[in-house]
Design a protein around this nucleic acid. Structure first.
Length: 271
DNA sequence: ATGGTTGTAGCACAA
């Protein structure tokens, strides 16, 4: 008998090799069908394939590069590699698309790592911020021109923007902080509108409630200060919206030994 | 208001 649901997790792991023990613990305890990682920070040849295979995840698609960025899809179910797109044509490993079979039919799954954008939210002095804005514009155009959100589609990843007022610990304090500036929020909102995507996390948690997926390493006590942001997202196309069953933000993962600064976000969909 | 930490690579830079 097949499972009644399909569990998909997104997690910015901040080095998959360093945190392989955490990934293994997560897969054993939470057993998602599909785990999407960002910031794997290794070349494809260095990716810990065998360890993940032996944990029951035999189907893996990766787009890596040396030291920076890198995305991976790790699956219990068969997947078909579809493409890696080079947004902004810089040769960065920031996207991968696969197709996964659910009982109700195939699902296209896009895994993204959007540029963080540097410290200064000023395109005149900070080219990294310009890159981030260009990347978001290109995502929007691509979604429209290629009809990316038509059919059964899931888009996950570290989008590095916290769009709503309660996606950050203080809306006012973060208006000039990269990740929550009005121009970034406007561009991510345009990405959402371009595909008429459903924000799967906010489907379960009202907009008035605080919701975070990331807490800085720089806080003396991340849990006490709780200055989080919702940088990680799961978007589903309209065709899949009716099948949303459950959300889990694994806040505990931020207290694990040598943690990532991001925690795993899991969605359950009708199979 | 400022500065705080982490990873990779190799003592600088990105996040």
């Amino acid at each position: 008998m097949k499972a009644a649901s399909l569990k998909i997790t997104t997690w910015n792991i901040n080095s998959v090799r360093l945190r392989l023990p955490l990934v293994a613990d997560f897969l054993k305890s939470q057993a998602p069908d599909v785990l999407c990682l960002q910031e794997t920070k290794c070349r494809d040849a260095e990716f810990p394939m065998k360890d993940l295979h032996s944990l029951g995840y035999e189907h893996i698609a990766i787009n890596g590069q040396k030291g920076y960025h890198g995305v991976a899809v790790i699956s219990k179910r068969p997947l078909r590699f579809v493409e890696k797109r080079d947004f902004c044509e810089k040769g960065d490993a920031r996207h991968i698309c696969v197709e996964i079979d659910a009982r109700s039919g195939p699902i296209s799954l896009h895994n993204f790592y959007v540029p963080a954008g540097g410290d200064e939210p000023d395109v005149d002095i900070n080219p990294k911020f310009q890159h981030k804005l260009d990347f978001l514009d290109e995502m929007r155009d691509w979604i429209v021109t290629e009809g990316v959100a038509r059919g059964r589609v899931v888009l996950v990843g570290d989008l590095n923007v916290a769009p709503l007022e309660h996606d950050v610990w203080s809306h006012k304090a973060l208006l000039k902080v990269v990740s929550h500036t009005p121009v970034e929020v406007e561009k991510l909102t345009a990405v959402l509108q371009a595909g008429a995507w459903i924000d799967a996390m906010r489907h379960f948690v009202p907009a008035e409630e605080k919701l975070y997926t990331w807490w800085s390493y720089r806080a003396a006590d991340w849990e006490a200060s709780n200055r989080g942001r919702r940088l990680d997202h799961i978007l589903v196309s309209e065709a899949l919206g009716g099948g949303l069953k459950r959300l889990d933000v694994l806040r505990d993962a931020r207290s694990w030994t040598r943690p990532s600064d991001h925690v795993p976000v899991t969605i359950e969909l009708s199979d």
